[in-house]
């Protein structure tokens, strides 16, 4: 088991270098001169441009720029933004906010999606099942930003139940509604996945045997239906963490949250290489760790899976 985890962590290395190199290259290849973008309509003197270029290593060949950047990372220096702030400072501020938002969304997905899916699957064809299928289809087909704006307008502006925009502290409480919006599509997906999985498992032979053993209905569902049904759901939840971070760009925009999404979006627009690469690289690592966690969770849920080496 430890061997397995060690091997998986080692696998992170090539992925880390591959991903950062690719992202760095993409940012490098983006059209437009970042210096020109920085100074807007009034271009500065030629000497100033040269100085800025040298400061940010923009005058060196691509591969040298990349190596310098990588070297910096291992000494804790993620570079500086074009406005002179250290990228690491921006990350320390932005990541906790988005982490709170994504974790809340993941929690809603797991709790609401699995619970509703379980009930729908056990009562297949009954009113609750039909209603939940229709509602989930609506959430899947309507774009998140529409849901976001509607929620913001109705609950924030009209009813005044929530603050339409989140403060810069972005506390857990403030993030509940944005997290629900962010998770809406995923909740619907988890519901459908759980429902199908539960409906299939409820008809399994071992469930009938469990009933024949004289177990109560509640125990049959808890012990013999739910655990087996969760295996595909856990996979989905793991891979969805990445989707949530991408989706956060839109949700953060709507509710004015100063998280990862907004920062990366702005940096991309400005062609700010160091910031984009740093943020995306950390996201790649988080995504990979989440996948490792899912694989380990598998072994907990399904004893047939064993990680030997």
């Amino acid at each position: 088991m430890l061997w397995y985890i060690g091997r998986r962590l080692l696998q992170l290395l090539p992925v880390f270098f591959g991903a950062t190199f690719l992202i760095y290259f993409l940012v490098f290849a983006m059209p437009g001169d970042p210096i020109a973008a920085l100074y807007g309509d009034r271009p500065p003197a030629e000497s100033v441009i040269e100085q800025v270029r040298a400061e940010y290593n923009l005058d060196k060949p691509f591969i040298v720029q990349y190596l310098l950047w990588i070297g910096g990372i291992f000494t804790g220096d993620f570079g500086t933004t074009y406005s002179g702030r250290a990228v690491i400072d921006v990350m320390v501020h932005a990541f906790p906010i988005t982490a709170r938002l994504a974790l809340l969304a993941l929690l809603f997905e797991a709790v609401i999606g699995v619970t509703a899916g379980l009930f729908a699957g056990l009562r297949k064809g009954k009113p609750f099942d039909t209603v939940s299928l229709v509602v989930s289809l609506i959430f899947i087909s309507v774009p998140t930003f529409v849901i976001g704006f509607v929620v913001q307008y109705v609950f924030g502006v009209k009813l005044g139940w929530i603050n339409p925009s989140v403060s810069s502290a972005a506390t857990w409480l403030e993030l509940i509604v944005p997290a629900l919006v962010l998770a809406s599509v995923s909740i619907a997906q988890v519901l459908r996945l759980t429902r199908a999985s539960v409906a299939e498992n409820a008809g399994a032979d071992y469930v009938r045997t469990a009933k024949a053993k004289g177990l109560s209905r509640g125990r049959v569902v808890r012990v013999h239906v739910l655990r087996n049904s969760l295996i595909p759901v856990v996979t989905y939840l793991g891979t969805d963490l990445g989707t949530l971070m991408v989706g956060a760009v839109i949700t953060e925009g709507i509710f004015n949250i100063k998280g990862v999404g907004g920062t990366v979006f702005d940096a991309v627009k400005r062609g700010e290489g160091p910031t984009v690469v740093a943020f995306v690289s950390v996201m790649v690592i988080i995504f990979m760790l989440a996948n490792l966690l899912v694989d380990l969770l598998y072994a907990v849920l399904d004893p047939r899976i064993r990680y030997v080496k």
């Binding site: 032979d205 071992y206 053993k213 087996n228």
Partner: peptide
């Protein structure tokens, strides 16, 4: 439910699918 198991036992057909794999 009180009759099942305690009064009437049941041995199912297919041993491969009648035990919960997890």
């Amino acid at each position: 439910q009180r009759v099942r198991g305690s009064q009437i036992g049941y041995v199912p057909q297919d041993p491969m699918s009648n035990l919960n794999p997890v």
